[in-house]
Amino acid sequence: MQTILVVVHLFLAVGVIGLVLMQHGKGADAGAAFGSGSSGTVFGAAGSANFLSRATALLATLFFLTSLGMGWFSMQAVERPGLMIEDSTPAVEIPVSRPEPMSEVPAIPGTAGGAVEVPVVPSVTTDNGEQPKVTE
């Protein structure tokens, strides 16, 4: 049923688009659309505006109704939880394996396993010989 409703909705959408594109603006009369006077138009002496307006309104109404129908079907298909959290489902505990700590620290590459000397950085002093204060 839902598939049929989607197909009908698609055809209605194409029909509404076609009818809206067939209508002419306010300044154009019915004869301008078909190249002759208003009495010689395809839709008769009343002109095409009346027929196209009613057909567009009918298809737009059907399009709106199928949109509501599809919305209703989509609401029925999904079971949505309420606002309150229910404690009826127990929590599942997942075991976590922790890696064993390493017993020794690996050597730094390029030092051949020996101690590395840290270079001494000279202290910074200001012009008057005082060390600047460090604020964090």
Score class of each variant (00 low, 15 high):
M1N: 00
M1T: 09
T3P: 00
I4G: 08
L5W: 04
L5Q: 03
V7D: 02
V7G: 02
V8S: 06
L10T: 10
V16P: 02
I17H: 04
L19Y: 02
V20P: 00
L21P: 03
G25F: 03
K26A: 08
A28R: 12
G31W: 01
F34V: 08
F34S: 10
G35E: 15
S38G: 07
S39N: 11
G40A: 15
G40H: 12
G40P: 03
V42T: 01
F43I: 00
A45G: 11
G47F: 01
S48E: 04
N50E: 12
A55C: 07
A57V: 11
T61E: 01
L65R: 01
W72P: 04
M75C: 12
Q76A: 15
E79I: 08
E86P: 09
D87V: 00
D87N: 15
S88Q: 04
I94S: 08
I94G: 09
P95C: 14
P95H: 09
V96C: 03
V96I: 15
V96T: 11
S97P: 06
R98F: 15
E100T: 13
P101H: 06
M102P: 14
E104V: 15
V105I: 14
P109V: 08
A112L: 03
A112Y: 00
G113V: 07
V116C: 06
V116Y: 07
E117G: 00
V118F: 11
P119Q: 09
P119T: 07
V120Q: 13
V121E: 11
T125I: 03
D127M: 01
E136K: 05
